[in-house]
């Protein structure tokens, strides 16, 4: 198998995720798109790990595990924030959240 086929799959998922993060209005959907981005990164890590022999092969897997853990933490906090936004303005429309407007 080519290494590039995995890396390109990762790149494709990453860009789809970026599109989702930028174009979606619903906060929950934005968080889902972020999961796509993180998964793309995981594919890259594992592909690079598989490319090497020896200890580096394990490093890729270990860091993929760490990313999965961090993603879980991120979803937890992210959804809590979305929930808070919903509670304060009865909508999860992110384009209405513009208190930082200059």
């Amino acid at each position: 198998m080519l290494i590039n086929q995995f890396l390109l799959l990762g790149a494709a998922l990453f860009c789809i995720g970026v599109y989702g993060v930028l174009a979606r209005k619903n906060g929950v959907l934005v968080l889902m798109s972020i999961e796509l981005i993180l998964n793309a990164v995981n594919i890259n890590l594992l592909a690079f790990g598989a490319m090497h022999q020896g200890p580096a092969a394990i490093t890729g897997q270990v860091f993929a595990l760490f990313i999965i853990t961090v993603a879980a933490a991120e979803v937890g906090v992210g959804l809590a924030i979305v929930l808070l936004i919903y509670r304060n303005r009865t909508s999860v429309d992110l384009s209405e959240v513009d208190l930082m407007k200059g």
């Binding site: 080519l2 290494i3 390109l8 494709a12 860009c15 970026v18 599109y19 490319m51």
Partner: peptide, 23 residues
Amino acid sequence: TALFLLGILSYVLIDFFQDDKLP
């Protein structure tokens, strides 16, 4: 933005790894 990113990423990856195979 997404297509632009995809283009650059694909170009870089194909350019660098060419036909490298996994062991």
